[in-house]
Amino acid sequence: MPWFLRKLSHGGLLILGVTFISFSLMVWFGPDQTYTLIGKNATTEQIAEVREQLGYNQSFVVRYGHYLADLFTFNLGASNSSGESVNRILQKTIPVTLALMLPGFILGNLLGIALALLATGKKDQWTDRLITGFSVTGMSISFLVVIIFLQVLLCTPYGLNLFPVRGWQVSGLASYLYYVTVPTLSLIFITVGYNTRFFRAVFVEEAGKDHIRTARAYGASTMTILWRHVLKNSLVPIITRFMYTIPLVVISGSLLIESYFGIPGIGKATFDAVTSGDQPVLKAVVGLTAVAFIVIQLFTDFIYKLVDPRIA
């Protein structure tokens, strides 16, 4: 099979699996919406009518079929809770989440790479030990603790009181920085330990390769070795990690940050949808993440070819 067909069929199977599992969990076993929609003391007919509307009276297979069909035709419907169209919700929340999460995500990775390069260059010396110790410490602190700590430190009169405790009223660069700083710092803080450690392992492995010895035998400085040889040879794992964590950090990470800081992004919308059983929203989020994963996989394979001449 040609490469892209194999990827595509692989992707198709993955989407099928993801949608199947999320359908079963979130829709089939998910919360029953009947009473939220019509209140406690409805008549039997009313109940039956609503259940039919929601499709509750149909079999698993039929409902899963509808679910898939809706997903593939981008017929996402309207939110059960607010009545707002799902497309509209996505349009509103996704930009907020990207604006909220991307700076921290990118900075956390860059900082991790920089620290890991430094540690690799000074391997087994005190700088390396310090950085390793720092990353293990970072890995041992809970996300929630970081958020609470930074909030107290930066947003309350008990600390510096520079930033808002919660909310997101962004209308320009100044207000953006005002609201995004604390979440961004939290995200950097929480990811940099794991990133540093991962990248250090990759770099140390690369630094042990034969061709690094060659570079040194031909007078390359440690700087040249790290920035040119080690970094360029590590691009595949770096890109892999970067690409594959985007959906996870953006969805899972935003879920917590947005709930905590009361920011109206996709994470909060998703979480609200889970707890209220808002199927149309869940359907869209899960389907989109799965598709995003597959697009990212295809795209990543493409980037591999650009950065590594061995991958044909």
């Binding site: 993955l14 699996g17 993801v18 599992i21 999320s22 079963s24 969990l25 979130m26 076993f29 998910g30 919360p31 959906p247 996870l248 969805i251 899972s252 879920l255 917590l256 998703t270 979480f271 889970v274 707890t275 059983g277 869940l282 989020v285 899960v286 993440t289 799965a290 994963f293």
Partner: peptide, 19 residues
């Protein structure tokens, strides 16, 4: 692969709800 492609907290929330 499937389990890794479902956002983790979303999955946990869904399981918690289903059970």
């Amino acid at each position: 692969g499937v389990l890794d492609s479902i956002p983790f907290y979303l999955f946990v929330a869904a399981v918690a709800f289903a059970l």
